[in-house]
């Protein structure tokens, strides 16, 4: 293909717009410059002109009647067409999709069905609490959930682990002891000072996670509904808490990893840990 033919192909599409005066100034200049020395494009322009002239030669077809004489028909309100609601179909589809999603998640979370990549806070926290009470290493749990809450003053790396008994509103729960102990800890006083309502339990040592003693109410702690009863009064976190930490050297097996809990207003922190969960407080974390 010669350079001229290449140019013709490039400008062919623009010849119509050139004829119609619909090119930008740059385009028009380029096409005109080419067409001035190209007989083929000049012929094309002539053909376009002839087609347009032919179309414009068509007589205008007049409407068979004057619609303005029947104005009542045009402006009279028309009965609305019957609307067939698709709502049942839509909700049915959504329901089926939800069931399928739940089935997939349940399959993923079922032990023995491979590593878990998604962890529901509520379900995971139940397991976690049990582990804390039993002092069982968490590494064996494929579906283990690590939950950590940080106060505003504590950066993402500054976990403030609390001890058993502090599993209550405002507390910080660390289920990965190794990680928590490695994290730099702000002085408890600082935390308390910045959040007067954020009270550490008596005897709690920041930066250290104690094993939870076996108690008679261990069975109760397995029940999410029972745990809030352990919470002391006034132990609520205020301010914003947002945590999302993942550690590459996550000790949790199977690739299941970390959980982030994020709450805008801190209401229901204990619920988010797995005790109660409302619509806004449930976060499923995918790793």
């Amino acid at each position: 293909m010669s350079a001229s033919e290449s140019d013709c192909n490039k400008f062919e599409l623009l010849l119509d717009a050139l004829r119609d005066g619909e090119l930008s100034s740059d385009e028009r200049r380029a096409v005109e410059q080419h067409a001035a020395s190209c007989l083929r494009c000049q012929g094309q322009l002539a053909d376009i002109e002839r087609v347009v002239a032919t179309l414009r030669a068509l007589p205008r077809v007049k409407p068979p009647r004057d619609f303005s004489q029947d104005l009542d028909k045009l402006i009279a309100p028309r009965p609305r067409a019957k609307v067939v609601s698709l709502r049942p179909l839509i909700w049915g589809s959504l329901g089926a999709a939800a069931v399928a999603a739940v089935a997939v998640v349940a399959f993923k979370l079922t032990p023995g069905f491979g590593p878990t990549n998604a962890v529901a806070v509520r379900e995971g926290s139940d397991t976690k609490e049990q582990r804390l009470h039993e002092g069982t290493p968490l590494q064996r749990q494929e579906t283990t959930t690590a939950v950590a809450h940080y106060s505003d003053n504590a950066g993402p790396q500054q976990a403030v682990p609390l001890e058993h008994g502090s599993l209550q509103p405002g507390s910080v729960v660390a289920t990965a002891p190794g990680d928590v102990q490695q994290a730099p800890q702000p002085p408890a006083d600082d935390v308390a000072a910045s959040h007067p309502e954020h009270k550490l339990p008596a005897g709690a040592q920041p930066g250290k996670t104690e094993k939870m003693p076996q108690t008679n109410d261990q069975a109760e702690t397995k029940s999410p509904d029972k745990v809030p009863q352990q919470s002391g009064p006034g132990r609520t976190l205020s301010g914003r808490t947002a945590v999302a930490e993942a550690y590459d050297d996550d000790p949790f097996a199977g690739g299941a990893a970390v959980v982030a809990l994020a709450s805008g207003d801190q209401t229901g922190i204990t619920e988010e840990i797995g005790l109660e969960t409302d619509e806004d407080g449930l976060y499923a974390i995918k790793m």
Binding site: L13, D16, D20, D47, I48, V51, A53, P59
Partner: peptide
């Protein structure tokens, strides 16, 4: 669309153009 529409019209009308010029009515 305008380019290809006209192009096709040119092809369709080519025999007609060949026989006589269309004088705009």
């Amino acid at each position: 669309r305008l380019h290809y529409g006209r192009l096709k019209l040119r092809q369709l009308l080519e025999p007609y153009f060949a026989h006589q010029d269309v004088s705009p009515a």
